[in-house]
Each structure stands twice: as structure tokens, then as C-alpha cells.
Write a protein that binds this DNA or RNA. Structure first.
Length: 279
DNA sequence: GACCAGGAGTTGA
DNA sequence: TCAACTCATGGT
């Protein structure tokens, strides 16, 4: 498959997905109950997955017209145009909603390395085991498998105060109709997500952008907050780096959605990489 | 030992 | 409705 428009390393390292591994240039990604293996051969990507088939083109949102998207956000200002150029090949992935939700609840108030530790522990304890290329992978548990987990079962995964949130969120998710959220509008999906214990504005935006087809979602973490304070004061009115209160988050995120339009989420991802590299 | 990390729930004005 | 406080934990 031709995936030359995609920079795999850049995409996987951009903080949107946590459970992936690189061994001698080969990438292994945990997608729900499967492992996807991808390697580059003569400019093309060769991939396989097991135990179940994973649609890799779907996973990497190959159905998005990235040139049209880059044009539509890149014409807004010089900074985003520069970020697109510097981080060419960065893509937004289409994750499994359950794995994405649990991942970003774990990602609150911590760093990416530790999120990975927490999720790996959850996979080891509750997920499946797959051998591939002599490596043992633990896949992400099903909703059912985590539904049976108690707080005591989860203690030891280093989740801290997030433990009870995970337990509650799994229960909520089991009763949700995810298709409704995918088909519905941004505001409706956000309201449902915000009703889940442990999910606030930022986590809701990440889940919507990375797994619920809401490409206009504009998550604001500390890095995006720095970008906004320095470069988008004229859009948001925020001039100093501040801790975003929920109402302020809503206003600023909404302003950025209005500014970048229906692909604001892609703009956010480019700016996130820009901030981590240069700020 | 303070500070930071892809924050959110609770509390009290 | 909104800001201040608290919530574990590991790395620097």
C-alpha cells in the first residue's frame, strides 16, 4: 500500500496514541484486541495484523484528503503553514473509541511515558496475549473484560486517583451507543462524554478527535495553551499562559474551532508537535 | 524537594 | 457560574 504521504514515526510520536512499539524500524501498534505490524519497504508500507484483520487505511484515515485539509487550515496564518511544512506526514489516527477513552482518562495530569506504563499494565492484567516476531504483546482488554475489574483489581497499575474514574467510565461506556456519538454533532457527543466520571472538556475533545470523527475538535493541553498564549492572542484574547478554567476552555476552544474551521483538529495536532519541538 | 506532566471533581462564595 | 483546592505518581 502506498502510504508515502504518511510519516509513521511522527504520527505515532504525536501524543495521540500510546500503545505502540518500534523494533529495528518495524512498528507494532496495539489496536483493541489486535496487533498491527507495519514496516517500510521500498517506499511503501507493508503491514499485517493479528489475530484479527485491521483495516490499516482506515486506521490512518487515508480516506481524508490531506492536501485539501492542509490547504484549508494552512491558509489561515504563517505559523500553521510553517508547522504543516515542518511536520509533513503527520496524520490523525482513527482509534477505537473505548481504548481512546480509557487512554485519555489515564492521560490526565501526567506525562506520556507514564500513560504508556498505566495502559501496558492494564493490557497485561486484562488483555489478550499475542506472539509476533518472537515478541509478546498484550492487547487492549474488551469492554467486558474491564467491566469485571474492580478497584482492587486495578490497584497496582499505578493509576492513582484515576482508578475509580476508570471503573466508572467502563460502566458508562458499556451503556453508551457509540454509533450515535459518531453520527451526531460535536455538541451532542461532548455532552454525553462530559457525563462520564473522569471526563472533562480536554479528554472529551481528545476522544472526539481521535475516535469519534469530530475533526473540528480542538483539545487544549498545556502545550497548546502555550501556543495560544503566544501566537493566537488576537483570536482568543488569552495573552498569558494560564490554567484554563472550564468556562475559559470552552470559549478558547470554540474560538479556535471557529478560526480553523471543520479541520481544526488537524491544526491542533500540527501545533502540538510544533510546541513540543520548539517551545 | 519543588516542579511538571496531553486535568477533573468537589467545594464554597 | 466561577476560582481555589485536592487528587497519586514518577521523572527531572
Amino acid at each position: 500500500m502506498k502510504m508515502d504521504a504518511i510519516n509513521l514515526k511522527r504520527t505515532l510520536e504525536s501524543g495521540q496514541v500510546f500503545l505502540w512499539y518500534e523494533r529495528r524500524g518495524i512498528y507494532y501498534i496495539i489496536c483493541s484486541s489486535s496487533v498491527v505490524k507495519i514496516e517500510s519497504c521500498n517506499g511503501e508500507f507493508v503491514y499485517e495484523s493479528r489475530p484479527e484483520h485491521v483495516d490499516v487505511e482506515r486506521l490512518f484515515r487515508m480516506d481524508d484528503d490531506i492536501h485539501a485539509i492542509n490547504s484549508s487550515i494552512g491558509c489561515k496564518d504563517a505559523l500553521i503553514a510553517d508547522a504543516i511544512e515542518r511536520f509533513k506526514g503527520l496524520r490523525i489516527m482513527r482509534q477505537d473509541p473505548f481504548q481512546c477513552l480509557i487512554s485519555f482518562i489515564c492521560a490526565t495530569n501526567t506525562n506520556i511515558a507514564r500513560v504508556r506504563q498505566m495502559l501496558e499494565c492494564i493490557c497485561r492484567r486484562f488483555g489478550g496475549k499475542i506472539e509476533l516476531d518472537g515478541i509478546t504483546f498484550h492487547t487492549f482488554p474488551s469492554v467486558r473484560a474491564l467491566q469485571d475489574a474492580s478497584i482492587n483489581d486495578l490497584v497496582g497499575c499505578g493509576l492513582g486517583y484515576r482508578t475509580r474514574f476508570i471503573v466508572q467510565a467502563v460502566r458508562s461506556y458499556a451503556e453508551m451507543d457509540v454509533d450515535d456519538l459518531v453520527k451526531g454533532c460535536y455538541d451532542d457527543a461532548r455532552d454525553v462524554l462530559l457525563s462520564i466520571d473522569g471526563v472533562g472538556n480536554k479528554v472529551a475533545d481528545c476522544v472526539m478527535l481521535f475516535s469519534l470523527e469530530k475533526l473540528e475538535a480542538f483539545p487544549i493541553d498545556v502545550w497548546i495553551g502555550r501556543v495560544i498564549a503566544r501566537y493566537y492572542r488576537h483570536i482568543t484574547g488569552i495573552g498569558d499562559m494560564v490554567k484554563f478554567t472550564p468556562p475559559m476552555y470552552r470559549r478558547v476552544s470554540s474560538a479556535m474551532r471557529g478560526y480553523f474551521g471543520m479541520y481544526a483538529g488537524y491544526a491542533q495536532q500540527y501545533l502540538y508537535c510544533y510546541a513540543r519541538a520548539y517551545m
